[in-house]
Design a binder for these strands. Structure first.
Lengths: 336, 336
DNA sequence: TTGTACGCGTTATCAC
DNA sequence: GTGATAACGCGTACAA
């Protein structure tokens, strides 16, 4: 049986409330003697306060929930690390859940975490549970969205400038004289992917280049290889490709390896995501890098403010990506 | 104010206890009418049970804690993902904490998570908080160690055969005619690193090759570049290297890049860890791969059994690593 | 300065 | 079948 406050009180020969005072450092109204007696009793019994009981009373668990699409994404990991670091300063802990982009799983997790009375939620939203999101907003429950926007919802959201960053990247390809540029994304069910495609198309249009349907793949990962096969079987296969995230990049690398397509030589390649080793492999890979750690920190700040009922901006917080130009986009003339 | 059971009871015109029965699906002793009344009242009020109160009563939070060295390690991420998947089947959640190999941080997290009454802990132990570990064992608190052994402690532990795997890898290098083989690890403060070095040394000894102090680096990551500098400034620099984890590998890649050392041509390279893209970069990298997902699942099973007070083996569960031979260890003759 | 008594939301135990 | 009532461990007025 665990030691409770009552045990400490008995041992120290005082009442529970005095022990409680002590624990909450309200020493002012307490004799030195009492203080020492309590301190010793706690030490002797090895007493640890029970946070569950405290939480029940205070209606605060000092825990927040993170609902991420998949922790295996490098970006998600970096964000989670930042969140953990930040909340640790406030003795708060993070519960991490993988929704796998599945609205049902997301709903289940949201309900479970709220039932567990976590103080707030940081969500990489699937975007499909509108009524549930709305219900949280109505209840003034602290929520911050990360990475993805959800239309018409008034929720503090931390994102990057997907469209502009992709546009900028494609313009880089154009400057490098690539003329046949393709893009591969997962299904366009979330804002991030959609915006990246938009940026791609805008860049082409602004440069009076044709926007070809057959150069734009949007398909689940498990069908990506198939679609790439089609793409590179075209009469005029692309000479450059934008991989819209790290998983797509992986598929492209696999495909290129199997079909002996030399990255950087036969195919210019840009990845939208933080790839570890991108600058160390050969050839080095041009990336669009997101400030994941800063974004996590920002989301943590926002959530903590919401929890403390402080004022918060409900406009999207938009971070800029950085284009790291490396060897994989040296230009189509580089057939060594 | 949140809806409580009392509200539902009042609305349905029954008592709290009956509502509780309903929620715990003990319908047997309940009229259909009562059941429907309660069901409707719950729906109308949008009632959600409060798990904190339930936990206080049941002494079970349905939450477990994970204390990991650093979630940014690929291995840790994979383990966490497996844990999350497993516990999700039991409606349990995971709190993830980064101890950064800092014993103080580890201690703080262990105490906090226990105060929060998590049902059990999976720890990648620093190995430095012996008394604290021992105290948990004495209290029969459910704990499973992951990745690292701690001497003389009776705790279910899930590890890999570090020594044998490294030995096997070095033997592979020897077979490939490498004669000057070095190893780089972080500081030898945890069993994993120590064992990998042991395996390296055994392989050399068994093959009657000299074990040279200057070929064995053990240093914090931030000093690794410096030590690599020294290593490759030797009169007889190594022609092959074992990077004892992914972070070391990163440092080696950086160093090689800066000093224009061609991996696979001038330097044979093996990494102990799961590197994404290892088989897709050029040259592909020989790795010693750990079955991280399976290990996580196993640890989850063990912990759940401990929580449910079922029998459990207290011997280490040892998984075997797999050596994936790739281009980075083609042999020292490969100077194209 | 310290102690009493009650509330937090749920579950368990008995009566009825 | 259903409903009081007492826990669970802690925080906090309010009384002493």
């Amino acid at each position: 049986m665990a030691i409770t406050m009552a045990d400490v009180a008995k041992r120290a020969g005082v009442s529970k409330s005095t022990v409680s005072q002590f624990l909450n450092k309200r020493y002012e109204y307490m004799s030195e003697e009492t203080r020492y007696k309590i301190r010793d009793a706690i030490k002797e019994l090895g007493y640890q306060p029970n946070y569950v009981a405290r939480s029940l009373k205070q209606k605060r668990t000092s825990m927040i929930g993170i609902i991420v699409a998949n922790i295996m994404h490098r970006f998600s990991t970096e964000v989670c690390r930042a969140l953990e670091d930040y909340f640790n300063n406030y003795d708060m802990n993070a519960i991490i859940c993988n929704a796998d982009n599945d609205p049902e799983k997301e709903r289940k997790y949201i309900e479970m975490l709220r039932a567990k009375q976590v103080d707030g939620l940081i969500i990489f939203p699937t975007g499909q549970n509108i009524e549930l999101y709305q219900e949280m907003i109505n209840a003034a429950y602290p929520v911050v969205f990360m990475d993805r926007k959800v239309k018409d919802l008034i929720v503090p959201t931390v994102v990057v400038n997907n469209k502009e960053a992709t546009k900028h990247a494609v313009e880089h390809l154009i400057k490098k004289q690539y003329t046949k540029i393709a893009i591969a994304t997962e299904e366009l069910t979330i804002s991030t992917r959609y915006e990246r495609k938009q940026g791609y198309m805008e860049a082409l249009k602004n440069n009076n280049m044709p926007v070809l349907e057959e150069y734009m793949i949007s398909t689940p990962i498990h069908l990506m290889a198939e679609e790439l096969e089609k793409l590179f079987s075209l009469e005029e296969p692309p000479t450059a490709l934008v991989a819209a995230n790290d998983l797509v990049f992986l598929e492209v690398l696999k495909f290129a390896k199997e079909n002996d397509i030399k990255i950087g030589k036969q195919l210019g390649l840009i990845v939208f995501d933080n790839i570890p080793f991108a600058n160390l492999v050969s050839p080095t890979v041009t990336t669009i890098s997101q400030p994941a750690y800063d974004m996590g920190k920002k989301a943590a700040e926002l959530l903590l403010k919401l929890i403390n009922k402080e004022e918060v901006t409900y406009k999207n917080t938009v971070y800029s990506c950085e284009l790291y130009v490396r060897e994989s986009t040296k230009g189509p003339g580089n057939f060594l």
